[in-house]
Simulated scan of single mutants.
Amino acid sequence: MFTSLIRYIQERSTSPLTKNDIGLIEEAFIPKQLRKRQFLLQEGEVCKYIAFIVKGATRQYTVDERGYEHVLNLCIENWWTSDRESFHKEVPSIYNIDAWEQTELLLLPKTNDYYERVNNIPAFNEMRIKLDDNQHMAAQKRLHASINYTADVRYEELMRLYPEFLQRFPQHLIASYLGITKETLSRIRHQAVRKQG
């Protein structure tokens, strides 16, 4: 279960992982399995873990006063998921995170000294800084796209960047992630099929 996490860290850092580093990572991270629709985090709870997805898929979303779900993030293998504000500030989360498929995770808790010790591993710290930078840039691009691009362009960008999302998640989640209605997404998909034909 740890092989994919170790490989992920090694591929994203120039610092080597020592045997001691790998041993510490294997001690620190807690394996967890979620059934489809089982929660990792529910609104109102304090997020206690940063989670690495070994296998499966998750969604992070809010539910408005009318009961509509608004998807903030869709995540698959070799992605991280958590509510970072809740995790770092120890405040109740406004998000839900649940498994969209049978999902295997590795959880890094904040409640013991492992979090600090793992973050002091040079390769892990280097990977985390790159990850933070990439997430910040992705969030900026997504915000820019939502303000400036049409639904058609946002869908094309999603197809280009994350084609696997279209295979793994149903239309209503894709539509919510793009900030459009299911009907708009259906129209865009039909137009895309006609263009290809």
Results as ranks from 00 to 15, higher is better:
D98T: 12
L106W: 03
S146C: 00
Y149R: 01
Q42S: 09
R59Q: 15
K182W: 02
S93Y: 02
K110D: 00
N125I: 08
Y95L: 07
Y115E: 10
T18K: 10
T18M: 04
D98K: 05
L107F: 11
Q10T: 13
Q135E: 13
F124K: 01
E126N: 13
E69M: 12
G67P: 14
T58V: 13
H172V: 12
L158T: 03
T3Y: 03
A175N: 09
V153Q: 06
T181R: 08
R84V: 06
L17I: 05
N112G: 12
T184Y: 11
H172R: 15
D113F: 14
A28R: 09
M159T: 05
K182E: 14
I121L: 00
I53T: 00
E85T: 04
E69N: 15
G179I: 07
F124P: 06
M159C: 13
V153G: 06
R84T: 06
Q33D: 09
E116W: 11
C75T: 14
G179Q: 10
N112H: 13
R154N: 11
L178E: 13
G179D: 07
E26I: 07
E183V: 14
E183Y: 14
T111P: 10
A51V: 01
Y177L: 01
A138E: 08
T62N: 01
I147Y: 07
E27A: 05
K32R: 12
M127T: 15
G179A: 07
A99I: 03
I94Q: 00
K48C: 01
A51W: 00
K19M: 04
D64C: 02
A151N: 03
P163D: 02
T81E: 13
P31V: 09
R37C: 01
F52S: 02
L185V: 12
T103M: 03
G56A: 08
R128S: 15
I53S: 04
K89N: 11
T103R: 05
A99T: 10
Q135C: 11
Q191R: 15
K141Q: 10
N78A: 03
L34W: 08
I76E: 07
A175D: 12
S146F: 06
L34M: 11
M127P: 00
R35M: 07
K130D: 06
S15P: 02
N96L: 01
E116I: 08
S93H: 04
T184G: 06
V91P: 08
L158P: 00
K130V: 06
W80L: 13
R117K: 15
F169H: 01
P16Y: 01
A139D: 04
Y68E: 10
I53H: 08
K130T: 14
K36M: 09
L74C: 07
R194D: 15
Y177S: 03
Q60R: 11
A139F: 06
I25H: 00
I129D: 01
W79R: 02
L24T: 09
S15Y: 12
A123S: 14
Y49Q: 04
L5C: 13
I147W: 07
D152F: 07
M127D: 03
